[in-house]
Simulated assay, not measured.
Amino acid sequence: MRRTIHFAAISLPISLLFALFLAILLNSENVLGRSIYRTLFYMPTMIPLVATVLIWNGVLNEQTGWINVLIERLTGIRATGTQGLRWLADPNLVYYAYTMFGLWGVGNAMIIFLAGLQGIPKELYEAAEIDGANWLQRLIFITIPLLTPVIFYQLVLGVIGSLQYFLAPFVLNNGTGFPEGMTRFFMVYFYKQSFTFFSMGYGATLAWLMLIIAMIITIVLFGTARYWVFYTTEER
């Protein structure tokens, strides 16, 4: 559970911020071919998750992966002598490598953020611009507050999804926890106990524990939402 929470603390903020960044960028009227870019960023979500993991296993290869090749071309040297960065074998890098898997499929979150952005009245931006507000001020005082219901929705789904993270470590190393046990997440442990060692009673206990933890976190999020989530139908 500690490893699962550690991974969620890294991957969830990065994924949400990246999806929001793309949505804001592709909502701008100054971007030519917005529909094409929206389609291109959404297309990776159509690829099966197992295929995505295998693709990124090659992309992050320490010797032939194009990310390490790009780093070598830019710096002129290998990151670790004769090898590149060991993205999937270094305990300090593996969580960031798995986060890249998620960024590849960020199209769903981007589309939801984009829908939220398009629901914000343009009159608010025009009034703020007349009052002299710059782009950053409009983002902080108009876009973000009116987008908080969508952010809250994405946060709840992201937390639950992070607690259930399973596919990538299982496909890449069969749930062994490589490297150094860093990828032995809660759901991997649950699967091994239930369907490898056939400890069904213990596995059922783990499943109930996950349900209780997810419920507690969800209740806490809903309890704190009234302090930072703004709905246009409410008076503050």
Rank of each mutant, 00 (worst) to 15 (best):
R38T: 03
T39H: 10
F41K: 01
F41L: 06
Y42C: 01
M43N: 07
M43H: 09
P44V: 02
P44N: 00
T45C: 14
M46L: 15
M46Q: 01
M46P: 01
M46S: 08
I47K: 12
P48A: 05
L49H: 08
L49G: 13
L49C: 07
A51S: 12
A51D: 08
T52Q: 15
T52P: 12
V53H: 10
V53K: 09
V53L: 13
V53T: 08
L54N: 10
I55G: 04
W56T: 02
N57T: 04
N57F: 11
N57P: 00
N57K: 12
G58D: 05
V59Y: 00
L60C: 06
G65H: 00
W66I: 07
N68I: 13
N68C: 08
V69E: 10
V69I: 14
V69F: 15
I71C: 03
E72M: 15
E72A: 15
T75K: 10
T75C: 08
G76Q: 09
G76F: 13
R78P: 01
R78A: 09
A79H: 13
T80I: 06
G81A: 14
G81F: 12
G81K: 03
Q83H: 15
G84Y: 02
G84P: 00
R86I: 06
W87I: 11
L88Q: 04
L88T: 04
A89P: 01
D90K: 14
D90V: 13
D90Q: 13
P91A: 04
P91K: 02
N92Y: 07
L93K: 04
Y95D: 07
Y95H: 12
Y95N: 11
Y96D: 03
A97K: 00
Y98H: 14
M100T: 09
G102K: 11
G102T: 03
G102W: 06
G102F: 00
L103Y: 11
L103R: 10
W104M: 06
G105V: 09
V106P: 03
G107E: 01
N108G: 15
M110F: 03
I111K: 03
I111P: 05
I112W: 03
F113N: 04
L114T: 02
A115F: 05
G116A: 06
G116Q: 05
L117D: 02
I120A: 10
I120V: 12
K122G: 15
E123K: 12
E123N: 14
L124N: 04
L124H: 07
L124E: 02
E126G: 10
A127E: 12
A128S: 15
A128D: 06
E129G: 04
E129S: 14
A133K: 02
N134C: 05
W135C: 08
W135E: 11
Q137Y: 08
R138F: 07
R138E: 15
I140M: 09
I140G: 05
I140P: 08
F141N: 13
I142Y: 07
I142H: 00
T143Q: 01
I144L: 15
I144V: 13
P145W: 13
L146H: 09
L146F: 11
L147T: 01
T148Y: 14
P149H: 15
F152S: 04
F152T: 04
F152A: 06
Y153F: 14
Y153G: 08
Y153Q: 13
L155F: 09
G158Q: 00
G158T: 01
G158S: 06
V159A: 01
